[in-house]
Simulated assay, not measured.
Amino acid sequence: MARDTDWDGVRLHVVTGKGGTGKTTVAAALALALAHARRKVLLIETEGRQGIAQLFDRPPLPYEERKIAIAPGEAHDGRDPGGDVYALAIDPEGALLDYLQMFYGMRSAGVALNRLGMVDFATTIAPGLSDVLVTGKATEATRRKQPGTRTGFTYDAVVLDAPPTGRIGRFLNVSAEVSGLAKVGPVRTHADTVANVIKSPQTAVHFVCTLEEMPVQETLDGIAEIRAVPGMQVGGIMINMARPVMLSREELKVQPDLAAMAAALSAAGLYDAESLAGSLADELSEHARLVELADRERSELEAAGPPIYELPLMVEGIDLAALHKLAAELRDQGAA
């Protein structure tokens, strides 16, 4: 149900999507959108591609929370400054060292194990453990308290650039993943703490897709998978790289008059008007086909139920200015 801010009360925004849909770009834009009016947001990357650093034109990010951007404020006269976006490029090894320090005070021992290759060995033979450690870092940042802040938390929101849609359910369902590793003990306790955050109203799973058949089908499958896990909340559907419609739907249904087009082109002084008219008619037919496809796929997404946000194709490419434009679109549509 749409509100002024659709996700009021959500503190952990998980962003997933099929590869090639611009998942990391949308996650970065969402972080900027959330970091308005002096809010502090943490943007976390999980796949080790350093995509966030590239988007914000920064050197490769270390395993530490580092400020990378300032979001615009509510006013443009300087009296209402914007908030801050911090970033963290997470990896299972660093998350395991944090875990050992948090529960056992054994970070130095963990560093030694890492040098021996034991950390990589452990996360390879138990891939579920890797997901628990990564999601654990995100939920720890979400829950981290800081006295004296407006909300009592270190961050007003956390945005997690999560793995692709094909494995998002397994990635987030940490309780099931760890069940074969530990029935009791600190690992199980840690997994249950993570699950309590993920399976709560303060977490929403957003889906990024383009208006094409395969991304839409993966989005619908992912939504069904998340809905099947008790407690998990489906967030919004963020249609990315939406192309503008040049003509009305009624105009696109009209068959082009090649003779009239050629005559008009010839009158304009263009050479080979008949051939040019044919090429333009082909372009028009292709545009009509793509619009029809996009409308059909959009209807399928609308039938799924979650709120839909539509982001335009940035034909000039993605840089910091483009991210700010996308962030403004998300805020205008109520996503942040």
Rank of each mutant, 00 (worst) to 15 (best):
209 C>G: 07
106 M>D: 14
290 L>G: 09
283 E>I: 10
24 T>L: 05
150 R>H: 10
200 S>T: 14
107 R>S: 03
3 R>F: 08
215 P>Y: 01
168 I>T: 14
242 A>Y: 01
166 G>D: 08
191 A>I: 07
69 A>W: 06
82 G>T: 00
289 R>K: 12
140 E>H: 13
207 F>G: 00
231 G>I: 07
146 Q>G: 08
65 E>M: 09
173 N>W: 10
192 D>Y: 06
271 Y>R: 12
136 G>K: 03
133 L>P: 00
65 E>C: 09
171 F>W: 11
143 R>H: 08
315 V>M: 10
320 L>M: 13
183 K>R: 15
74 E>Y: 03
125 I>M: 13
143 R>V: 12
47 E>S: 13
120 D>T: 13
22 G>A: 09
270 L>P: 01
53 A>F: 02
241 M>D: 11
128 G>V: 10
248 S>K: 14
32 L>F: 07
147 P>R: 15
309 Y>N: 06
85 V>S: 02
53 A>D: 08
136 G>V: 02
261 M>R: 10
86 Y>S: 07
213 E>A: 14
278 G>R: 10
206 H>E: 06
32 L>T: 00
167 R>K: 12
106 M>S: 12
185 G>S: 13
34 L>R: 06
23 K>C: 04
43 L>R: 01
158 V>P: 00
130 S>T: 11
258 L>V: 10
267 A>V: 08
273 A>H: 03
8 D>Y: 08
124 T>G: 07
160 L>A: 09
190 H>T: 07
336 A>C: 05
45 E>A: 05
236 G>D: 01
319 D>N: 15
269 G>K: 04
26 V>N: 01
309 Y>I: 06
43 L>P: 03
240 N>I: 09
187 V>F: 15
297 E>M: 12
37 A>E: 11
297 E>W: 04
27 A>T: 03
251 E>R: 13
164 P>E: 08
130 S>A: 15
96 L>Q: 09
243 R>K: 15
134 V>G: 04
254 V>D: 13
109 A>E: 15
253 K>I: 05
332 D>W: 03
130 S>Y: 02
83 G>K: 00
113 L>W: 13
200 S>M: 11
107 R>K: 13
51 G>N: 03
273 A>V: 04
96 L>F: 15
13 H>L: 07
40 K>E: 10
1 M>V: 12
94 G>E: 06
124 T>P: 01
79 R>C: 08
3 R>Y: 04
259 A>M: 09
71 A>D: 00
267 A>S: 15
66 R>M: 10
39 R>D: 04
122 A>M: 15
146 Q>A: 11
97 L>T: 06
145 K>H: 13
298 R>T: 03
56 F>W: 11
259 A>K: 14
53 A>P: 08
209 C>Q: 01
92 P>W: 08
252 L>A: 02
259 A>G: 01
204 A>C: 13
265 L>T: 02
75 A>T: 10
152 G>D: 09
291 V>Q: 14
119 V>H: 12
14 V>Y: 00
131 D>H: 11
250 E>M: 03
46 T>K: 06
26 V>Q: 08
234 V>K: 07
274 E>L: 00
280 L>H: 01
20 G>D: 11
113 L>K: 15
16 T>K: 04
